[in-house]
Amino acid sequence: MQKSTSLRPTDWINRLIDWIDVRVGIRQIVSYALHVSIPRSAHTFYLGGITLFFFGVQAITGILLALYYHPTPEAAYDSILFIMNEVNFGWLIRSIHAWSANLMIVFCVLHLLRVAIQGAYRPPREMTWLVGIALLLLTLGFGFTGYLLPWDERAFWATTVGTEIAGSVPLIGGAIQTFLRGGPDLSALTLSRFFDVHVLVLPVTLAGALLIHLLFIHQQGLADPEERDE
């Protein structure tokens, strides 16, 4: 039936996709993931997408940095110097990670402002808004824990001040501070905790919350800013 000699590479790819599609309906899944209804009046809906892009950059560069980083007080700063001075493109990967971290927070906040100004958080989209706030807090958590990891003077004292602010909460402040630091003072235990939270707890939590956030958007479509005054 098929003239197999005349098959082009794209035909082979299509046949492979067909093979998967018959079994798990991959075309429907991809179509659902790619298509979301966007109102014609949309002009500012890219801010969340840019934030998502920066999260992807952070994931890739973060995985790369973890290859050479040592989360111990003795070796942490030396491993940073090693990445910056010895590893091929290490300076590039670390700088991208640092810049992208800042830009991710900037676009997170711009995204929040846009949703707030256009009233896109209103019913039926309250849950997307709440998950979005959780995503913002998780992103700030990334910033707070990541800042300690170079283990230089600035990192050490920034985390000292940051955990002392947590310690000023009435009644339970002292307990929060001890919990964050893993002891009464900043030590090797603090660095282990922050590293663990930065590379294990937060990425998994943020990825999960992000999936829920995107699922809601795909279920509801985006809000039309011109429909706000009904």
């Binding site: 790369l64 030396d78 493109f89 590039l92």
Partner: peptide
Amino acid sequence: VPIIGYLWPPARQSSA
């Protein structure tokens, strides 16, 4: 290219 270069171990094994 930078990612592959990064993954490749650097010539000098340690800095400090």
